[in-house]
């Protein structure tokens, strides 16, 4: 079937099988910042935002995502124009192997959109899908708090 996916604001028409999984379609179409391995919704690596909310793209039918806005980490920020979350992650040693980071950044983005000043608990809960085997999470949590503070200041200015 032919369907239309909107990825980071760009509409693209893609040919999919009705049972295709969003993660697989995104990768096939070259959206390589979305990765994933478990295909069981267990690890959070494949997180994308659907209308601003984090979902596991490995458990989502591509057809179900049609008509919704899909945001990947590159829709949040790029090397040239990093988002404060990416700045904070990079500047606090919160990125090690990097594999889980796009998913973690997206979960954090959704959290901050909803709660601009989350405490530790809220951050841990709001990003609990996103396993990270390298960092032990602490520096990421600090980074989210730092980014949140920076964004709040920005809003005030």
């Amino acid at each position: 079937m032919t369907t239309t996916l909107t990825v980071n604001g760009t509409m693209c028409t893609v040919e999919i099988d009705p049972g295709d999984i969003l993660l697989d379609v995104l990768r096939r179409e070259g959206t390589l910042e979305v990765r994933g391995d478990c295909h069981t919704g267990d690890c959070g690596v494949c997180t994308v935002l659907l209308d601003g909310r984090p979902v596991a793209s490995c458990l989502m039918f591509a057809a179900k995502a049609a008509g919704h806005a899909i945001t990947t980490v590159r829709g949040v920020g790029t090397e040239a124009h990093p988002h404060p979350l990416q700045e904070a992650f990079v500047h606090n040693g919160a990125v090690q192997c990097g594999y889980c980071i796009p998913g973690a950044i997206l979960a954090a983005k959704a959290l901050l959109d909803e709660n601009p000043d989350p405490d530790d608990q809220a951050i841990r809960l709001g990003m609990d899908s996103n396993y990270c085997r390298c960092t032990g999470y602490e520096q990421q949590i600090e980074a989210v708090k730092a980014a949140a503070a920076a964004m709040r200041e920005d809003v005030h200015q």
């Binding site: 919704g41 659907l50 979902v55 458990l59 809960l125 709001g126 990003m127 609990d128």
Partner: peptide, 12 residues
């Protein structure tokens, strides 16, 4: 509802 499973599944 805000605590079972994990965040991206809770949105699904």
């Amino acid at each position: 509802a805000g605590r079972v499973a994990s965040n991206n599944l809770r949105d699904m």
